[in-house]
């Protein structure tokens, strides 16, 4: 199974056939059920597991990123997303909804926790994810 190809095909299919809200629902299920343990830590006020999760998978998949703290904010700056890079190398048409997996999973992870996670897509294969305490 070619995972990123299938993920891209899945996102494209779900968005076109069932709409963006339904696609967001699947990401919310992922954040709430699959990443339950990360979310439980966030609810307790501890973002460590999420930061480790980001770093572990981006290292494993040879992503280029920086993680830095600025006061109460933790910034995860993605310079080269391994999923986008793979799809580009394979000349696969990337769904315009592809990055919403990151935006929506982050948003759903932060629901009912003391944090907000803001995701800003800064380019094709780059983004900035910021965790901070809600005002």
């Amino acid at each position: 199974m070619d995972f990123y190809r299938t993920l891209n095909a899945t996102i494209s299919y779900i968005a076109e056939r069932y709409g963006e809200d339904f696609l967001k629902k699947t990401f919310r299920m992922m954040a709430h059920d699959v990443y339950r343990s990360i979310r439980e830590d966030l609810r307790k006020g501890d973002p460590k597991q999420l930061i480790e999760h980001w770093a572990y998978y981006f290292d494993r998949e040879n992503g280029e990123y920086e993680i830095c703290r600025q006061g109460d904010e933790i910034n995860f700056k993605v310079n080269k997303c391994p999923a986008i890079r793979y799809l580009q190398e394979q000349h696969i048409n990337i769904s315009p909804h592809f990055c919403s997996q990151t935006v929506e999973v982050n948003k759903a992870l932060a629901e009912d926790t003391p944090f907000e996670i803001i995701t800003k897509i800064t380019g094709r294969g780059s983004c900035r994810q910021v965790i901070r305490k809600r005002p």
């Binding site: 339904f22 629902k25 699947t26 299920m29 992922m30 998978y57 981006f58 998949e61 999923a83 997996q101």
Partner: peptide
């Protein structure tokens, strides 16, 4: 990004939703 390693878990959620 949903890591490739977690794709099957996302897939499992998509199956339930669809």
């Amino acid at each position: 990004m949903i890591p490739s390693d977690h794709f099957v878990r996302y897939y499992n959620e998509v199956f339930k939703a669809v």
